[in-house]
Design a protein around this nucleic acid. Structure first.
Length: 805
DNA sequence: CGCACCACAATTTTT
DNA sequence: TTGTGGTGCG
């Protein structure tokens, strides 16, 4: 066989395999075909990276290393070449070289949701065999690795996972015990300091040593807290989120056989959102990939928005140095957004200096221009958003195609009100999470304590919930007794009668300990869902809530019921009926995992949570200095760049239309404030954005341009508008001179309605008034619309979009 | 021991 | 403005 033959065979094979991915562009194909050795994919927003990931896995499973290898199969022949070239029936078999078994692939994503999506798309493409692929987050991968060998690092198989709330409350306890003032030692700050240390692989001894050198008393004290924090976690057989990574790295570093096992096991590693990884995650991936070096990372330095929680953009910026001979592929064709939107995104991000440099392009049309609307107030801002949505809905758009993005969660409330008043269905993501609710934490604490009574933190949480006459004083006494004797709180309360100091609560404490023992015995023989019932029954938790009979407590009781659903779902989906398994799963679970794209409702979320999602129509509200960019980023160039990346992320969520909204004044911490329009708006080229200032603003812009009327037929009264044809650089003057108060809101007279009246609504069409409830100088209407069902609308708002007939 | 009231602060967030 | 946490009283 000649070299010529070899290269002909390899070419034919590669071309054949490439032809199996006709739906991908050449760059994407390259990324799919490069199977051997390190690969860095710089994937811009909307460039189809998920597609690439999935097809890469498909290629590995189907053709193995064939497309990336120069090894010939045994018995390579001329016939095989022609079969490949002609795409014959046997071509598939001839092309394959050592197909990769699914269990040798590890695909790491950042959220459970992304992992779930990856899994389901792989299953669609590959069927059954995709089951054995590890598609999970760093954290859940670590849990699985740790469970196998946790005895080597001094944990039991059933170690529990502390979430941020647990960690926070542990920190608070330690502060209290060490007589430290939360004012000078803010628990959140301490926790993120500890988290940062762990992320940089600095353990308490090293941290304390470093702190001693600095003669910084505060830091030394933090070192003490850190030491104690770790000590107590270990005592409770618990790990926090960072520990999962930390201990896994330590396990692999210190145990060659374990490292060897996992290195052999995972021949191919894929990591998504690499720009969001920290040092620990980098090290973990380097360890596992250490043998085969088949590591493929996907990321976008421009979308790195989590530096504040320890992500280091360095990982992606220096990947090429860390893996010599690495292949870098850029995916710059955007399949999501139309021209103006993309141009705006490129123009904004170009102002950052710390980046690899990447320019998105599209072969789509320019599409609609970006709209900038300058609202009066946050109320007006919200009403504008609602009106635009109603207009869209009346043109046949679906609610689910709309999203409103904002910088911080607190901005959601005015939007919520506006959407409610207008009868627009919406969903809010973020804010307080289901698993962070007190009642859920309570029940989960019961489950944890049943699983491991040595967990002082959680035992303390439930010892008097619902109230059973064990007050904080008694708990404190018991805790210090436990500390003195080196026992757990549970040990002490089990034998409370042996301690003089606990004479009074002794009976109640023992009764509680007996309750836990009984539940433990029960859990030995029963599945978690039955244990849940038993806990509710024996503790009277729901009963206590229902007795209060307030609306809030009823909602709480419902949440608790909902928790049972989560247990049942877990048991059904994983086939695992162990309590420890469920608890680990729950700790790693978040609300975003519940994100349901099929619901017919508009989406409200922070720009951060929107990463990875896309919507046909996007509104970004609060485009004002001190809000976005946020107050704390102003004057800090690194943070400003992160804000700008956030802006880039937000803009690139939009597929067809993008509305930016700023408010002339808004209520901030109970004060009316007025801020200049966001610098990011200025960074968008004039030809991509169309600035609207509502009728009634009688002020001149600095460049003395005339306002030109523009017709806006689709939206009702209140949003007819004037436009600056060649807008001034700023939407309004930079010193905060307030323009004369506009007289523009609710120019339409209120409708005079009675029950039974027929109305025609702009978006919901014809309907009949079925109920009117006066509320102050407004009224709550309930109108029956044959096309959409019953809607509750506020009279004042609805009058803008509705007429009587 | 539980509840009510007042002071105080106030991004972003996944696991 | 809103939510939280601490204190003081019943």
């Amino acid at each position: 066989m000649t070299d010529h033959f070899t290269s002909r065979f390899l070419d034919a094979r590669r071309d054949y395999i490439r032809s199996r991915f006709p739906h991908l562009n050449p760059m994407q194909q390259e990324a799919v075909l490069h199977t051997e050795g390190p690969l860095l994919i710089l994937a811009g927003a909307g460039s189809g990276k998920t597609s690439v990931l999935i097809n890469r896995v498909y290629n590995l499973l189907k053709y193995g290393s064939a497309s990336g290898s120069d090894v010939l199969p045994p018995f390579a022949s001329e016939e095989m070449i022609s079969e490949l070239e002609e795409h014959g029936a046997l071509a598939d078999d001839y092309a394959a070289l050592d197909p990769v078994p699914p269990w040798q692939i590890l695909a790491i994503t950042f959220t459970n949701k992304a992992a779930g999506e990856l899994k389901s798309r792989l299953e669609q493409l590959l069927g059954e065999s995709s089951r054995d692929i590890w598609a999970c987050t760093f954290h859940s991968a670590c849990v699985r690795i740790l469970r196998r060998d946790c005895d080597r690092i001094g944990f039991t198989r059933d170690f529990t996972i502390y979430d941020t709330t647990d960690s926070l409350s542990l920190i608070k306890h330690i502060l209290k015990d060490q007589n430290l003032d939360e004012k000078y030692y803010p628990p959140r700050g301490i926790l993120s300091e500890i988290s940062r240390a762990k992320g940089d692989k600095i353990l308490p001894p090293e941290y304390c040593a470093e702190a001693k050198k600095t003669i910084n008393l505060h830091r030394q004290q933090v070192g003490e807290i850190y030491t104690e924090y770790m000590r107590r976690l270990t005592l409770s057989d618990a790990m926090d989120f960072d520990d999962l990574l930390l201990y896994t790295v330590m396990l692999l570093r210190e145990n060659e056989d374990v490292l060897d096992y996992w290195q052999r096991r995972f021949r191919y590693i894929l990591i998504d959102e690499y720009q969001d990884t920290n040092l620990l995650q980098y090290e973990l991936s380097a360890l596992i990939a250490g043998k085969h070096k088949n590591i493929c990372v996907v990321g976008d330095d421009d979308q790195s928005i989590y530096k504040f929680r320890g992500a280091t953009i360095e990982n992606i910026l220096s990947f090429e140095d860390q893996y010599k001979g690495c292949r870098t592929i850029r995916l710059e064709q955007n399949y999501r957004s139309t021209g103006h939107i993309l141009n705006a995104a490129n123009s904004v991000i170009r102002n950052n200096t710390e980046r690899k440099g990447k320019e998105l392009w599209t072969d789509k049309s320019a599409g609609d221009m970006i709209e900038l609307y300058t609202a009066d107030s946050e109320k007006d801002e919200a009403q504008y958003v609602a009106s635009k949505m109603l207009a869209g809905y009346s043109r046949g758009e679906n609610w689910r195609d709309y999203a409103v993005l904002y910088r911080k969660n607190a901005q959601s409330s005015s939007l919520e009100f506006a959407l409610k008043r207008n009868g627009i269905p919406y969903r809010i993501y973020g804010g307080t999470r289901f698993f962070d609710r007190a009642e859920i934490k309570d029940i989960l604490s019961y489950l944890s304590v049943v699983s491991f009574p040595g967990d002082n933190l959680r035992l303390e949480r439930i010892i008097n919930t619902p109230p059973r006459g064990i007050g904080s004083k008694s708990i404190e006494t018991a805790l210090s007794l436990a500390a003195e004797e080196g026992k757990t709180l549970f040990d002490v309360i089990s034998h409370a009668d042996r301690y003089e100091d606990l004479a009074r609560p002794a009976m109640r404490m023992r009764a509680f300990a007996v309750l836990i023992e009984e539940l433990r015995a029960f859990s030995e023989a029963n599945t978690p869902d039955l244990l849940f019932d038993e806990i509710i029954e024996k503790t009277g938790y729901i009963r206590a809530l229902k007795e209060k009979n307030t609306q809030e407590d009823t909602a709480r009781a419902e949440n608790v019921e909902e928790l049972k659903t989560s247990i049942l779902t877990y048991m059904k989906e994983s086939g695992d009926t162990t309590l420890a398994g469920y608890l680990a799963n729950v700790a790693l679970y978040t609300d975003l995992d519940n994100y349901d794209t099929s619901a017919s409702a508009v989406t409200l979320m922070t720009m951060h949570s929107s990463k990875g999602l896309e919507f046909p129509h996007v509104f970004i509200v609060g485009m004002e200095e001190t809000i976005f960019p946020s107050m704390q980023a102003i004057g800090e160039s690194e943070e400003m760049e992160e804000e700008r990346r956030l802006c880039y992320v937000a803009i690139t969520r939009a597929m067809k239309t993008l509305h930016l909204v700023c408010a002339r004044e808004r209520m901030l911490f109970g004060r009316t404030t007025s801020n200049r329009v966001s610098r990011f708006v200025d960074e968008i080229p004039e030809e991509d954005i169309h600035k609207t200032i509502p009728r009634g603003y009688g002020f001149r812009d600095p460049s003395n341009q005339t306002y030109v009327q523009r017709s806006e037929s689709s939206v009702g009264a209140g949003y007819g508008s004037y436009v600056v044809r060649k807008p001034a650089h700023k939407a309004f003057d930079e010193h905060t001179v307030k323009p004369p108060a506009p007289a523009k809101t609710e120019q339409k007279p209120l409708l005079q309605l009675a029950i039974g009246d027929s109305v025609r609504h702009q978006a919901f069409h014809e309907g009949t008034v079925v109920k009117i409830t006066p509320m102050g100088n407004d009224a709550l209407l309930e109108i029956s619309f044959p096309s959409v069902g019953n809607k509750k609308l506020m009279l004042r708002t609805a009058s803008l979009h509705m007429e009587k007939f």
